[in-house]
């Protein structure tokens, strides 16, 4: 079992995860490069993973660690679809800037 003194207050992890999550969210919302936006999403998902693992340790409950694995698999699947879409878009337009392709308005 985990010795008592090695357990860090989970609130530190909440703060760290929130910072990572916010950086990711800002990247998605403000950066105009589709790849960077995708990176931002990954950062957000991993911030949640950090929380799951930290809480699993402080709750002494392994299920939280198992949840992190599920999230990783889903994140990988999401990247596959995302990159495929970005590549098709790049082939048709020679750009992946989110400001350029603007035919849909209103």
């Amino acid at each position: 079992m985990i010795p008592e003194d090695t357990v860090v207050d989970p609130m530190y992890f909440v703060v760290l995860a929130t910072i990572l999550f916010s950086i990711g969210a800002v990247a998605v919302l403000l950066r105009r490069n589709a790849i960077v936006a995708l990176l931002g999403v990954e950062l957000m998902l991993n911030a949640s993973n950090l929380l799951f693992v930290a809480f699993a340790r402080s709750h002494r409950d392994v299920s939280g660690q198992a949840l992190a694995f599920f999230v990783m698999v889903v994140a990988a699947a999401e990247v596959v679809v995302g990159l495929a879409l970005i590549i098709t878009l790049f082939r048709s337009r020679q750009t992946i800037s989110l400001d350029e392709p603007m035919d849909l308005r209103g």
Binding site: V14, G24, V41, S48, L51, L85, L89
Partner: peptide, 24 residues
């Protein structure tokens, strides 16, 4: 294709927000 990319980025963003909520 443009619609798909927009849908994907916003959808992935919303899922990530949902997951952070689930973690909390």
């Amino acid at each position: 294709q443009e619609a798909a990319l927009k849908y994907f980025l916003m959808g992935a963003f919303a899922s990530a927000v949902y997951l952070f909520g689930a973690a909390l």
